[in-house]
């Protein structure tokens, strides 16, 4: 749908991997300088040896620090839609070539992460990171930073990878007093809706497991015509339309929140429901897909271009 999706899997770019001393690194460099000056002053060769041993170990550790995050690949990303104000949870699948990686920090670039991960070379490592959302729309949490200070804690290597992360954010639901009165839908001028329901006999159909026993055509069964179910046209009778125009309030966001609450309630009650918004109508339906479609319309309402970076 969105054309600028990065192509997964995406690996950390070694050319954009940076390394700098941590604050302990600067402290350690200071210690090394003091050691060096002391050794020069006392012309102490063993002091020189220790100073240069530690410096060399630092330089070697640069390599270890950098290779610890080198080649980390993001294989897939998944995020379930959330309601505004909730945390959007992103689940990354991460693979590493070669050997296991220890003490890896994976976090949103504008956040800090205190929990290091161990990434195993043989497995799909699943990492979950969440970030609080504020508004409805499409939530883009920004780039992901992968960093490590392993093994000495004196150098930090990091690389930022843009996965073009996004997550649908539905409006924050408001559950107002709301019950589905019969005829509620008639008021809104939806001419096709009628309360005819179970009375309208439509015909016979093959029995499907789960059909009500009351609707089995016992007559036909006794006549040896097999198990048939009487079908009634009740699709309109049980369906409702959740309608923007019927809400008394004027504020768009409040309206959307109330609509969101209605959709959730209708979904929970297993009702068939449609949605009517200015310029859009969604025919009644049910199921998770339908729910998502309706809520997505709410989240993008008058807002198609809202691709905001929420913080």
């Amino acid at each position: 749908m969105v054309s600028n999706d990065p192509i997964l899997p995406i690996a950390l770019n070694p050319k954009k991997t940076y390394i700098l001393p941590t604050r302990f690194g600067y402290l350690f460099i200071l210690l090394l300088l003091i050691m060096l000056i002391g050794s020069v002053n006392y012309n102490n060769n063993l002091g020189f040896l220790l100073t240069f041993l530690l410096s060399s170990m630092c330089i070697v550790s640069l390599y270890y620090t950098n290779s610890n995050i080198k080649g980390i690949r993001f294989v897939s990303v998944r995020a379930e839609p959330v309601f505004a104000g909730d945390s959007a949870m992103f689940e990354f699948t991460v693979k590493v070539p070669g050997s296991n990686r220890v003490s890896i920090f994976v976090h949103f670039s504008d956040q800090l992460d205190l929990n290091p991960e161990t990434l195993y070379a043989t497995e799909n490592n699943r990492i979950r990171r969440s970030k609080i959302t504020v508004r409805r729309g499409i939530f883009r949490p920004g780039a992901i930073t992968v960093s490590t200070v392993y093994p000495f804690g004196i150098f930090r290597a990091w690389s930022t990878v843009s996965l073009n992360l996004k997550c649908d954010v539905y409006p924050k639901p408001i559950f107002s007093s709301f019950d589905f009165q019969p005829g509620y839908s008639e008021q809104n001028g939806n001419a096709t809706s009628s309360r005819s329901g179970a009375e309208d006999f439509q015909g016979l159909a093959e029995y499907q497991p789960g059909d009500s026993l009351q609707h089995i055509s016992w007559k036909k069964l006794s006549a040896g015509q097999g198990l048939l179910t009487k079908k009634f046209d009740d699709s309109i009778g049980n369906s409702i339309v959740i309608n923007w125009f019927s809400l008394p309030t004027q504020d768009t966001e409040t309206k959307l929140s109330i609509l969101c609450g209605m959709i959730l309630k209708a979904h929970r009650m297993n009702l068939e429901y449609g949605l009517r918004l200015p310029g859009t109508t969604i025919n009644p339906g049910s199921g998770n897909q339908h729910r998502h479609r309706c809520l997505q319309h709410l989240s993008l309402f008058q807002n198609e271009s809202i691709d905001h970076d929420q913080t």
Partner: peptide, 28 residues
């Protein structure tokens, strides 16, 4: 790992040790 890094640091240490200029006397 510590031993490994120590051994790998050895050649560089020797170079630094030999090349770092020594002075006569002391600084202060």
């Amino acid at each position: 790992l510590s031993g490994k890094i120590l051994v790998q640091a050895f050649p560089l240490m020797v170079i630094l040790f030999l090349l770092f200029p020594r002075i006569e006397g002391s600084l202060w």
